[in-house]
């Protein structure tokens, strides 16, 4: 039970960035270039004709534009991103959603599908009943519709794949670890589904049976999830955390490989650092093999 759980801390070797890596890394105050021919992008400022970094990160150059992309950051949303978020406030005609970005995002009442089909008209009653659809603390998945000038995001759920989330587990990782892909919804062959939010919020849930179209995504089943499904979800959760601790990009293949290489271990053993390390190493190897 408790035996073997307590231990002394040990030095874990840091995964060092090899010096030969061609990535150009800077810290705030580093002069990137004194050539005036470049344009100033995000994460930089001009100091006496010299282009200087204002964040720690990697320098990116697109033609004449120089940006510094911070490696650890909150979520910078772009139109079309899939996000998972939590309702923090119900206001008139809109919900405030926490999405790991600098400001709370906004979900307008007019950008959700209400029960009764897409063509339903919104009326005053809907405004009063907003809390019945989504209340504080509820989780949703949505797509970024537009970005306001202050950086706040406007979301929409006008598709059947978006809406309120039911039973499942939320895992929070850094947004830069989620790989941008064609689709962020996956029904993994191991028996569970995953939504990889671009904002670093990852939702794991049991693969649903047939969808009830009439409910418009606001009905959540409170039926108990079966034990095998739970085991898969818990294992996936620990795998994702292991990958995130070792800074492996998250996408369906990496998650799946990690899941498969974790099979010899018990689920709760995956919380141990050395097991994490081993599993991630095997995953890395497999990913390299596949790529090569």
């Amino acid at each position: 039970m408790a035996a073997g759980l307590m231990r002394l801390p040990v030095f874990r070797k840091q995964e060092t960035v090899s010096e030969s890596n061609e990535k150009h890394l800077v810290v705030p105050g580093d002069v990137i270039t004194s050539d005036t021919g470049f344009m100033r992008g995000h994460g930089t400022y001009m100091d006496e004709e010299k282009l200087t970094a204002s964040v720690a990160g990697e320098v990116e150059r697109v033609n004449k534009l120089i940006c510094v992309r911070p490696l650890k950051t909150r979520f910078y949303g772009e139109v079309g991103d899939v996000v998972v978020g939590r309702i923090t406030e119900v206001q008139q005609k809109r919900w405030k959603v926490e999405t790991n970005s600098r400001l709370d995002s906004v979900l307008l009442l007019s950008s959700v599908n209400l029960p009764g089909g897409e063509l339903r008209r919104r009326c005053a009653e809907d405004e009063l009943a907003m809390r019945d659809y989504l209340q504080e603390g509820d989780l949703i998945n949505a797509e970024v519709q537009s970005v306001f000038s202050d950086g706040a995001l406007s979301l929409h759920t006008r598709s059947l794949k978006y809406g309120k989330l039911g039973q499942g587990v939320l895992v929070q990782v850094s947004p830069s670890l989620v790989k941008r892909q064609k689709t962020h919804f996956h029904n993994l062959p191991c028996g569970a589904s995953i939504i990889l939010g671009n904002n670093g919020y990852i939702w794991l849930y049991p693969t649903p049976g047939q969808q009830d179209e009439e409910a418009g995504g606001f009905h959540t089943s409170m039926e108990p999830v079966s034990l095998p499904d739970r085991e898969v979800i818990s294992r996936l959760r620990n795998c994702i955390l292991a990958l995130a601790t070792h800074k492996v990009m998250l996408y369906d293949t990496s998650v799946l490989y990690c899941y498969e290489s974790s099979r010899p271990h018990e689920i709760k053993d995956l919380l141990k650092p050395e097991v994490m390390e081993e599993v991630v190493m095997i995953t890395r190897q497999r990913l390299v093999e596949q790529a090569g």
Binding site: L5, D138, Q167, M222, V225, L227, S234, E266, I267, K268
Partner: peptide
Amino acid sequence: CEAEKVYIMHGVRDDLRVDGRGCEDYRH
């Protein structure tokens, strides 16, 4: 949220918590 609570509660009933531990297991 409610659904997450239900999920956690049923997990505890089945002696399998969200992170794979049993009811009487400590974390690392």
